[in-house]
Design a protein around this nucleic acid. Structure first.
Lengths: 341, 341
DNA sequence: CTAGTCTTGAGGTACGTATATCTAAACTGA
DNA sequence: TCAGTTTAGATATACGTACCTCAAGACTAG
């Protein structure tokens, strides 16, 4: 049988109360006694039963998720996953609050951070925009004992406990590898469609993409990025113009949330079906485009996985338990028509 | 606050003992009373606190994993993951026993199933080989109340509760899509290297591969399968001979556990570097081959995910709780050099 | 040495559920 | 209607941990 606090007390030759004081880091125990208890814990291999502890403690994990508002489909996917987790969360003593802030607006994000009372929340997950104010806000919460993870876009300087998301440079490199090889012998240009070059993940993807195209596919050349601001209308216009202007385009890399516009353009002319197209984010639209052969590959990160991972990481931080690294690494998923889930 | 059994008793106008009898399906309660209690549960949205219940019940989940012995690297990966879970499982009232049976030996598997006492185990996960004996053995355990999931290779007729694994036909189709497109304009033949055509997953992958090559890549033609029996030596010999014999091979699909032999052959001649090679299973060897450009893509299923998923599914079945579908679907992962985790 | 503080012990109650026992009430059949 | 059975209630204990109180023992400073 697993050892309990009673066994630890016996082994250390102290009372239950003392073991409890040591376990829960309460004051009033001599250093020598603390050492005795800790030695007993190690000898017995005692591990606190967190379920029982949480029951006794009446613990509720108060978690706050701050995510950008707006049309970005990945953010909306995160929101949907959160909603789903919330509806099932009666079971696991977890209370999740979702705070939406205007996208790309770090002032609003700072305000949201400041409105959080460290006393009432135990964990925070946020999609960070990298500014000093945000960094300081996060650092303050960390100092007050709040567990913090960043999602999608990292911010190491803030002292967050973990980052949940993919390596976007690698994602860009992956896209380039796919386009380069799918293009085969063809020579020509590649159009890049992004949301905005002010967002770190898009910048990083573009960087990785450029690296690989330049180094490995001399027959291809990247055109300047079209910034579609996550707006189908704008993307449609910019991309259509670009395809008119440049006769020699062989591929398109849709870096961010602009798939709808890209699809519209591709459907407009049969000739565009020969283009090699790689996009990000598996949605109903991109899935359909993949099945119909408009897209050749979609690179994805699993929103559900990211949400669940963030929650696990926050709880582990709060409980002081270990994590399984493999379970928390977010994969750069590649989908072709044939391996759609 | 969340309603408790006390609240249910109050709401239904019965005693705690009666609520307990209903919740735990014990006899001695009139149908009308059961209905009253159940109505109260619905009205209050009562959900049993499983942590508290397990604490009171002193429940330990006794899980048995039956996996094939032998050199198959994916099976060994499953075993390693199980070992890791076991070492962390002090925490979660889970006791995992791993039973290894000779690969492809259904008699041994049947014997292993028969040696299991349904009274002492609550869940079983097994890599099934499809025979009547195995099916009946599983069915017997199911009838006796044991939760059962099949892994890697399914067996629907056994009445198992779930299947944990990928769609191998789709995996084969995916491999074909990659080889076909990476080959570009080239015409020629594709060599297939499998472990054995007696194993369902290899057969299915081959089927999916053939389908897509025939339908979409008329310039390519599949050669007969080389059966390497998961043995590097045999694979090396067969594949080397094949490449000598057939001057016009443009690609290789390594269907199963034979990557070591394939890699040896590829390294032997610089000319072989131009071959398009897609293999299964991400291991140290295949990862290295990918980085060095010997392999063009590796298709993988995450062993850690499968083990964790099997455990979650078994526990959910035992506790009668719901599962999150998205979390349990095993993906057909594609790795290129650039998206290696 | 004494008063004061610091450290430890003993014991109880609580969390939400499971389970056992004993008793009382409500039915059933003849 | 009465005995016999079925159904229901009341109450207690337990699971492993947290946290509280009260009292007593061990120190420290003056």
């Amino acid at each position: 049988m697993r050892p309990t606090v009673h066994d630890v007390a016996g082994e250390a030759g102290v009372s239950l109360a003392t073991v409890d004081r040591v376990l829960n880091k309460r004051a009033g125990v001599r250093a020598a006694t603390v050492a005795r208890v800790e030695a007993a814990i190690v000898r017995l291999g005692f591990v606190r039963d967190i379920a029982a502890a949480n029951l006794a403690k009446q613990r509720v994990y108060h978690l706050v998720f701050i995510i950008p508002d707006g049309p970005n489909s990945f953010m909306r996917a995160l929101e949907r996953e959160l909603e789903q987790v919330r509806s099932n969360s009666v079971l696991d003593r977890t209370e999740i609050r979702v705070v939406k802030v205007p996208a790309f607006d770090s002032t609003a994000l700072v305000a949201a951070l400041e409105s959080l009372d460290p006393a009432t929340i135990s964990g925070l997950a946020l999609v960070a925009t990298e500014t000093v104010g945000v960094r300081d806000g996060v650092a303050r919460l960390r100092r007050e004992g709040v567990a913090v993870v960043t999602m999608v876009s990292d911010m190491p300087a803030s002292g967050r406990d973990h980052f949940v998301g993919i390596d976007n440079v690698a994602a860009g490199r992956t896209a380039a590898g796919l386009i380069g090889r799918f293009a085969g012998q063809r020579r020509g240009k590649v159009a890049l469609v992004a949301g905005s070059m002010l967002v770190r993940d898009h910048v990083e993807r573009r960087m990785g993409f450029d690296q690989v195209i330049q180094a490995e596919f001399p027959a291809l050349e990247c055109l300047p990025v079209l910034e579609g601001r996550d707006d189908a209308e704008i993307v449609r216009e910019l991309l259509a113009q670009c395809l008119e202007r440049e006769p020699n385009i062989v591929g398109i890399y849709s870096i961010g949330a602009g798939n709808r516009g890209v699809i519209d353009v591709l459907q407009a002319r049969p000739a565009y079906r020969d283009l090699v197209v790689v996009a990000h984010e598996l949605t109903d639209h991109s899935r359909k485009a993949l099945r119909e052969g408009l897209f050749d590959a979609v690179i994805n990160q699993d929103a559900g996985h990211e949400i669940r991972s963030a929650i696990r990481l926050l709880k582990a931080r709060i409980d002081g338990t270990r994590i399984v690294d493999g379970q928390e690494s977010i994969r750069i998923e590649i989908y072709l028509r044939d391996n759609l889930p």
